[in-house]
């Protein structure tokens, strides 16, 4: 590829100093290149530092060494520009309505109120929550809250959408439904997405590519291409190819877990 990738990570490492001995390495020289409009899934066991990696990409968490490039520009440690995050538990402001929550990022960026309201309504409509614009988060179900979270991130029209296990806390049906809906939205208006999960099925169903991470220290184990065409149908979950890929990733994750040297795994 000749063009600059949408997102590029160069040798990103993160370690914490320890009172005794060598520093604890959480992320070990992560190098990654994400082309424009790709749906990239990062898959890994808990404790592999995938959430930390996403926060480093978002700029809210500093890395010890390395660079984060967005469209070729260095954005390491600088949140806010070009990226928006969907958080694990939606994390809506309880004192704002659904509409107010979607407006939040726009207001922060200085969009005038009337325009912010109009744009927020558009994105609420996109996630099917127009009727709940004036509801407070505590009046919404978990799935609806996360839809608001997605609308909030999309509303700032980011170059790069970051999703940190956004469906992890939802029940299975809601989760399946939201996965489908996310694909529908994404297929209509393709953005570059970095999506974190620990569910293999979710990774295969959603992603163009899957980055499999290993733990202690967090590192990239392997990168897999997902062969299924777009738009994806729910039915691919039953195809033999899907199952074979799931098996392959499962074995990979096991290898990664066994390879983790015990002596490096100090208690957290």
């Amino acid at each position: 590829m000749s063009n600059t990738p949408k997102l590029e990570l160069r040798e990103v490492s993160k370690s914490f100093p320890r009172a005794s001995g060598a520093p604890l390495t959480v992320l070990d020289r992560i190098a990654l290149s994400v082309p424009d409009q790709e749906f990239l899934v990062i898959l890994g066991p808990s404790g592999c530092g995938k959430s930390t990696l996403l926060k480093i990409i978002d700029g809210t968490e500093p890395c010890t060494t390395g660079t984060v490039l967005l469209d070729g520009a260095d954005v390491t440690g600088r949140p806010g520009t070009g990226r928006a995050m969907v958080f694990q538990g939606a994390d809506l402001l309880p004192w704002q309505t659904a509409l107010g929550n979607v407006m939040f990022g726009l207001i922060l960026r200085g969009v005038p109120k009337a325009e912010a309201r109009e744009r927020a309504m558009r994105y609420l409509e996109m996630v099917g929550l127009t009727a709940f614009a004036d509801s407070y988060p505590h009046q919404l179900s978990g799935g609806m809250q996360q839809r608001v979270g997605i609308a909030r991130a999309l509303a700032v029209e980011p170059e790069l959408l970051l999703m940190d296990e956004p469906f992890g806390a939802l029940d299975v049906q809601t989760r399946d439904l939201l996965q489908e809906e996310l694909l529908r939205i994404w297929e209509r208006d393709r953005k570059t997405v970095v999506f974190i999960t620990h569910s293999i099925e979710e990774a295969i169903y959603l992603g163009d590519r899957i980055v499999v991470m290993g733990a202690r220290p967090g590192r990239i184990e392997t990168v897999l291409q997902v062969p299924f065409p777009r738009p994806r149908r729910e039915s691919i979950r039953d195809e033999p190819e899907f199952r074979a890929l799931r098996r392959q990733i499962w074995d990979q994750l096991k290898v990664g877990a066994q390879a983790a040297p015990d002596l490096a795994g100090a208690p957290a």
């Binding site: 978002d58 809210t60 949140p79 806010g80 520009t81 928006a84 995050m85 958080f87 994390d91 402001l93 939040f104 990022g105 922060l108 960026r109 700032v156």
Partner: peptide, 9 residues
């Protein structure tokens, strides 16, 4: 929530 605010700049 403070993290959300930071993330949105």
């Amino acid at each position: 929530l403070m993290a959300v605010a930071r993330s949105f700049g």
